[in-house]
Design a protein around this nucleic acid. Sequence first.
DNA 1: TTGTAAGCGTTATCAC
DNA 2: GTGATAACGCTTACAA
Lengths: 341, 341
Amino acid sequence: MGHTIRDVAREAAVSVASVSRVLNGTARVNPDTRARIMAVAERLGYVPHAGARSLSIARTHAIGVVLPDLHGEFFSELVRGMDREASRRGLQLLLSNMHADVEQASHALRAMRGRVDGLVIMAPHLDSVTLLKALPRTTPAVLINCRAEDDGHPALRLDNAAGVEAMVRHLVDSGRCDIVHIAGPEGNLDADERAAAFSAAMARLAPGREIQIIPGDFSEEAGEAAAHQILARARPVDAIFAANDMMAIGCLMALREAGIDVPGRIAVAGFDDVPVARYLALTTMRVRMAEIGAQAIARLAASMDQRPTEASVALHTPELIVRATTALPRNQTNSAGERNT
Amino acid sequence: MGHTIRDVAREAAVSVASVSRVLNGTARVNPDTRARIMAVAERLGYVPHAGARSLSIARTHAIGVVLPDLHGEFFSELVRGMDREASRRGLQLLLSNMHADVEQASHALRAMRGRVDGLVIMAPHLDSVTLLKALPRTTPAVLINCRAEDDGHPALRLDNAAGVEAMVRHLVDSGRCDIVHIAGPEGNLDADERAAAFSAAMARLAPGREIQIIPGDFSEEAGEAAAHQILARARPVDAIFAANDMMAIGCLMALREAGIDVPGRIAVAGFDDVPVARYLALTTMRVRMAEIGAQAIARLAASMDQRPTEASVALHTPELIVRATTALPRNQTNSAGERNT
DNA sequence: TTGTAAGCGTTATCAC
DNA sequence: GTGATAACGCTTACAA
């Protein structure tokens, strides 16, 4: 099963040490022997055994990525961003899906010991304290959107509060105060933060209005269902702010089907700015997932190379993207098309 | 940096062999010592070093995935499918991006030696012969959409010819014979196959009509550009068939902006059925990327466990998804909405 | 049932 | 310059 360094050494009539030196360029070796070794390696089609090498030098040049079953585009964007940054740095990504329970998650983490130099962990739905016990305290790790009982690990967090506030402000500014929020799955960090921020923002920006929150689960279907529920009841609604784009889209489809004028009668907004949002002209909060992924890798790399970096928490602030689904009513229109704020 | 099996052995006053046996359940050991060992391991927070273990047992339980910089949704879907299947089987995925040139690609492959039990390689843009020389002939590998100079590796291929033919037939059946094809980047296997199949299908299904092909690169912008080019010239066109969805979407946007009636005056069709396609009601050929990814893992797992499997090539046939952008003209309508064939 | 020791394929520290 | 050889952390005959 593949040649070893010893095969090369034997064929070239040298010691394994010399072969290693040549292949890694770690020390001077006589040009002649060097050439001979290269030739043999080439002829034998020798490929070094990275696993053994890692064991020896105690460095794998790989970083472990532990993600939950992510909804839709998120996975894609996040991993793409990481992958880009990782391959720029000559690092490989060891992916491991972490399913719902902490059990499997910590198993996944343990399985990484000795295979990676660091970890990127995203677990918006789990108790990170339990989780972190599973990982050797020596392994550098950066946390993305974990419930941060600030435990000393560098972390990346989404500023959900700021995002939600910006959106509520936008809606209120355009004259819509009866806003209903469709929440994400309970227990999910982002969902919870967004719902809480919604209540807070409403209390501040539209005092006196009822705070309406409908439960959801981040799925398109939940958005549809919520739309139907909203249409069926009597309370006034002039805007729907879903906790993520997919639910907003479900809403949009349901409203369109019901013949409701959007944004004329009801405005609709989402959160995330997934690619589809642009095509459907959905107003939303843009979250640059790829950038967050790349940043995670960058910070991890830093804390792997140099001295342990500051355990700071970097906050990513979403950006308001105004599109047609919340366009201003005709008589108030002061700008057209897409506008960033 | 983390405890070793020896630490546990020492603390528990047993040999490393016993610790190993207990932790792997590979042999009977006295319940008492067993308990003692477990306790110590727990207390020390011992996590086995997977790298060392792999070296010893010559099995990594990881599979390497080498992909090009994939366009859009593809990456997402493919990796998601693989990830799903891999984690079902307790396998980890070692991701490595392969950039344009064969040099980097083969480097990426070599870096996997000793870290994975098998490889999934996708390289629609490279010469797989050169590529495959880089990998130890002993490592099991499955190829996805590689130019298959059938070299003995199990492979997964897309039946582009069948897909293109189905679409051309659909267009012709709905009375559109002046079809222009927007091709993908030259050198890309799928792009080339689709363009060739287009010519063939036209010759067969719309004999006598000019075979019009406009070059593109799979990007939305290319689709827009092509649309403008088409509108600017005199030749009659009643349908545009883009080599992928993103270009079809670019087209769609450009036509919409130009006030062209779709599908009334010009029908538009794509290829891939990316998620956005449904929302834009784009007729397309559905390619189940996630399924292909999962299948790749499944086949790889098979050829890793058992005897070397047959080197067959599995063909994935895309499915025609008819949506509004190619709906039949009013007077011929015989079905409504979305329809699968 | 338990322990000793020889690998697994590298790298790195010594001598020479 | 080059070559033995001891790690690296684990598994697994083979003995005891």
